[in-house]
């Protein structure tokens, strides 16, 4: 069973739909036991960092998520919340990745919205994915690159398109909205 972390962020239904299209059943839950017992956990989200962190604290999800030992996939805001700090309303985040989340400089259109490719792919998450393949991004804040970076995308500047540390994986783009390539990446995660 796949568990999707239930919290006050949008887009959770899209991930559920994507899993159903891959014939995969899932439960949307904020119950620590269900999250710990799941085969895999997906931590999705579209929204604002500070209110999301407040919700996670209030529902005792901070330690639960940090303590998970099953494979976890953060998506978009999920990735940002898994980092140490976000410039979005100066928010302390989970700190699974020691990356900082910064606002894109406004030298080009912000948000970074649309299909973009990535490179320096180094993870089983990208099996069958090529650097010229495009995935769908929508974000105004980005994760700086670090030792955990497993894919780099370029928009205004190079940033982490994906991160990994041990069982924790995270992608800045939306695999659930990235057509066949996104489906491939989700399938790769599900078969870890």
């Amino acid at each position: 069973m796949i568990a999707i972390v239930k919290y006050n962020a949008g887009n959770i239904g899209s991930v559920k739909n994507a899993l159903h299209r891959l014939n995969c059943s899932c439960v949307i839950t904020d119950d620590p036991k269900e999250l710990q017992a799941a085969d895999k956990v997906i931590f999705p989200g579209v929204g604002e960092a500070q209110s999301a962190m407040e919700y996670l604290k209030k529902h005792q999800l901070v330690d639960t998520i940090k303590g998970l030992t099953n494979p976890v996939l953060g998506i978009c805001l999920g990735l940002q919340l898994m980092c140490s700090h976000s410039e979005e309303n100066d928010t302390e985040c989970l700190g699974i990745f020691k990356n900082r989340i910064r606002l894109f400089p406004s030298t080009d259109i912000v948000p970074h919205m649309g299909w973009n490719n990535f490179d320096s792919l180094r993870s089983q998450l990208f099996r069958g994915v090529k650097t010229k393949d495009d995935v769908y991004f929508v974000h105004s804040y980005y994760a700086e690159r670090s030792q955990y970076t497993i894919a780099t995308a370029n928009y205004i500047l190079p940033f982490s398109a994906a991160l990994q540390r041990d069982n924790f994986y995270a992608v800045q783009f939306h695999p659930e909205k990235s057509a066949g390539i996104g489906g491939q990446i989700l399938t790769n995660f599900l078969s870890l």
């Binding site: 239904g13 899209s14 994507a18 159903h20 909205k177 990235s178 057509a179």
Partner: peptide
């Protein structure tokens, strides 16, 4: 529509 398609 949301259930059927995998783009925004």
């Amino acid at each position: 529509i949301a259930a059927a398609i995998n783009i925004p």
